[in-house]
Amino acid sequence: MTDTDLIQDIDASLEQSDDELEDDLPELLGRMEGQTEDLVREYPETFGRVVARMETMDIASFVSENPETADQFQELLWAGMNVLVESSPEVKESIDDDITVTFEADDCPMAGHLEVDGTEQTMTGGAGTLDDPMLEITGPADTLVGLIVGRVDPIQGFMQQQYQMDGPVHKGTRLAPIMNSLSDQVPASAES
């Protein structure tokens, strides 16, 4: 099966209802494994549409019902973000500090991390937690995914207590503009 077939199948699933998409997603994520970053790089519009659909999906319910795919689901998100950082001078310019963050959902078994390197001007994320992160972010899975894809404004979300953050405040305030500049590049959020 070629990449084109897989992308066609993803596009077809995106046309379906949330329930049907959630049924298809574990298999699609399995097929993407190992080539997620390449697919996002080659088909950014499809990635953008996946992100857009996450606004209506119940992420916590999906992850709870498909715990084995939680990591793959996050890999898709982070792969998309990694590609955006690589290809976006605006995002790179906004990276001027070293920040490590762990994200942990409080309503389903989902944990991820983000490493921002101020010297290299890179930002990489993935599933699983870091040993000694500077910042720890906890909240509902929907909110955490919203933070990653730009649906939830980092400062507004924190001030409105949509999620909790622990760690040095100055690191948190440095992370917020970086996350914002990243989310500006997400195709779905750029359209909205």
Binding site: D153, Q156, T173, A176, P177
Partner: peptide, 8 residues
């Protein structure tokens, strides 16, 4: 929250 976010 927007005042805060915009200032940051």
């Amino acid at each position: 929250s927007t005042i805060f976010g915009d200032a940051i």
